[in-house]
Design a protein around this nucleic acid. Structure first.
Lengths: 157, 157
DNA sequence: CTTTAATATTTTAAGCTTGAAGTAAAATTG
DNA sequence: CAATTTTACTTCAAGCTTAAAATATTAAAG
């Protein structure tokens, strides 16, 4: 594994290589995300953050506390408040009181929300399959191994 | 390259593998970005978008048109207007008229902006080096190859 | 108990982001 | 050369995002 584009000197310091890797990672990830965001809006009339919240709720039929949603999605608390407010107004989610703790709420998908999410999730998976169609099973496995290694080196991830 | 975590069946359809890969890519990239954003704010009192614009300008001493900045950074036109407004107010960037085309402006870093960017860029590279310290030269090269392959399969990127 | 600390969430202010609509200037067409 | 289209940019409305401050409640300490 010593091949490299002709314009990158082998004597490049490792810090430059790491920087180059990060910029590539950011660009690649951003391209895919941009395409997903575009389709979410155009074809489903929703946004990635909403989809992410619904996705988290769909995996927890018993409901999730607000703080648990923000922890899982790695976004701030206040952020989730606004998104759940909207989903609630639309009858997609609802807040259920937690017996014995009047501070907290459990957020759940309504039946309507479950139905909508199932549709959206199917479309989402099909889009990813389409966008990543150029990667075969070996490509996917190889990339996944690299990412797991990288992710392991990011402490506390 | 057939190893895989024990909880993922080898019979998983490729679409599921691709979805899993995307989620991993998104999470990894997001973790790094989050850490960078945090340090930008805490240690430099700036933001990633501002840094990105300054970075684009730093590479083009002769200046860039607004539309060229937004094209390179893959963000909307209106977005760049606001960021360049701020940089201009702060004396970091300036708009220069384009002779013969009164619609367009060339945006440049001021000497002050160049100085600030040089400092920020040094810190930024050091942070990446630190965050990715767990990857040696071979890791970086291998990951880069995978990313280039992936990026090649995303048409028009 | 009652003061203090921790937890759960919401509100707020500031800034980023987009897509669409608006303005102005330049290029093209007939 | 007048009408139309394209290009460059800004403004706008709506929504996402964060960190910090504010509320409310529960738990812990003395």
């Amino acid at each position: 594994m010593t091949s490299r584009p002709a314009d990158i000197p082998s004597t490049e310091p490792i810090s430059k290589s790491r920087l180059r890797l990060w910029l590539k990672l950011l660009k690649t990830s951003g391209s895919i995300e941009e395409e997903l965001r575009r389709r979410m809006r155009a074809e489903l009339g929703t946004t990635l953050p909403r989809f992410d919240v619904m996705s988290a709720l769909a995996r927890a039929p018993e409901g999730l506390k607000m703080s648990e949603i923000s922890r899982r999605l790695r976004v701030s608390n206040g952020n989730i408040t606004g998104i759940v407010d909207k989903l609630t107004e639309e009858g997609i989610a609802l807040r259920v009181a937690v017996p014995g703790d009047r501070r907290a709420n459990l957020v759940r998908l309504t039946p309507k929300g479950q139905k909508i999410f199932a549709e959206h999730a199917g479309r989402h998976e099909a889009w990813i399959d389409e966008i990543l169609a150029g990667l075969n099973a070996d490509d996917v496995a190889g990339m996944m191994l690299r990412l797991e290694h990288l992710s392991d080196t990011l402490e506390g991830d």
